[in-house]
Design a protein around this nucleic acid. Sequence first.
RNA 1: GGGGAAAUACCAAAGUGGCCAACUGGGGCAGACUGUAAAUCUGCUGGCGUACGCCUUCGUAGGUUCGAAUCCUGCUUUCCCCA
Length: 376
Amino acid sequence: MNYSILANDTASKARCGILTTSHGEIQTPIFMPVGTIGTVKGVLHRDLEHDVKAQIILGNTYHLYLRPGTEIIRRAGGLHKFISWDKPILTDSGGYQVFSLTDIRKLTEAGCEFRSHIDGSKHLFTPENVVDIQRAIGADIIMALDECPPGTADYDYAKKSLQLTQRWLERGIRHFRTTEPYYGYEQVFFPIIQGCVYPDLRRAAAEHALSFDPEGIAIGGLAVGEPAEQMYEMLEVLQPVFPEGKPRYLMGVGTPVNILEAIARGVDMFDCVMPTRNGRNATIFTSEGIINLRNKKWADDFSPLDPHGASFVDSAYSKAYLRHLFVAGEMLGPQIASLHNLTFYLWLVEEARKHILQGDFLAWKNSMVKKLERRL
RNA sequence: GGGGAAAUACCAAAGUGGCCAACUGGGGCAGACUGUAAAUCUGCUGGCGUACGCCUUCGUAGGUUCGAAUCCUGCUUUCCCCA
């Protein structure tokens, strides 16, 4: 894997670059649609490639391991072949499920013991076996197993949790470096920085992770209940610790505004369920602001979904029609809204890239943030 | 023509003397959603008020009772059965 910086913004910490993986190039800053179970919910690959212009998508170790199971994916020839997607894939390690499935899991030094949310069966994830599973999945970018504490965690818990994440990282990276890819192409391994909202913990976590000279570095444990200002502050704390030549991935973030603010603070990669989940639940993000399509006020608004939108659905369908689809419970509604939102997110990071290259990113970002926060 | 049953909020449907402004569904309105246990979840849904509360409601007009959606009588409407 190779990462080269094309431009640095002078007025902010934003940068733009090109990340080269085994399955092609990724232009950063980039948003990566989430495809947890081997599908970006409700969106066909054809549309994901040509309309959304997605350059890389996510899969999830926990979900794919439970269903269809590692063996099926191996026999399919890897996740790319199984789901028919030949661009890059990043898999999360299952660390986030340590957080979101908190009542059906148990943390130990060895790893994380889970109960399957599907059938209740017991499973153990270790820093080593999640590498094996992700090797079998064939992800271009593999994530370390971590503990993602809630945003409300106190200092003592945050510190203990970080120490566990660090010990897991050492084991994970050792295992990664002593195993081979399954399918012949290169895979890379990203450590995850924890430390909640405590600057000294974050700094120490970054230094520790960077001591292994990884290909890229992920920031986890943000946007998990703490105020957005604290998240931005953590990015500011981390920014000077990061070397220029490694991509920085802010996990699970976020709103369009969060993404622009994080780009301004030096982040290169993002993923979030928000465009697809909120889309399925009738919220769309547009260049004019946020629209809840279920609201009555759209019932007779026959204007295009998003007059400046980059997706064909933006001009092909009206707000009134999409509202009708949601109210009627028709599945085309969630599909159109997901497609719109993903296209919007990818358009947003593409615009950010352009403005970084042009050298007017900060001014553009500040004017966008105001529009994006509006609720229509 | 005779006999029987029923009328409850936007719809359906509980409730059959005080715990009823009225269960529950649906519909409607609004909100939430950040490395996806989510095409899910939450709230409101007679009026006024932030709230304690006050006012008007259970086909309609009366009556009984301290108190009625609930009991009685007339009327209206609907449904069923027999001629």
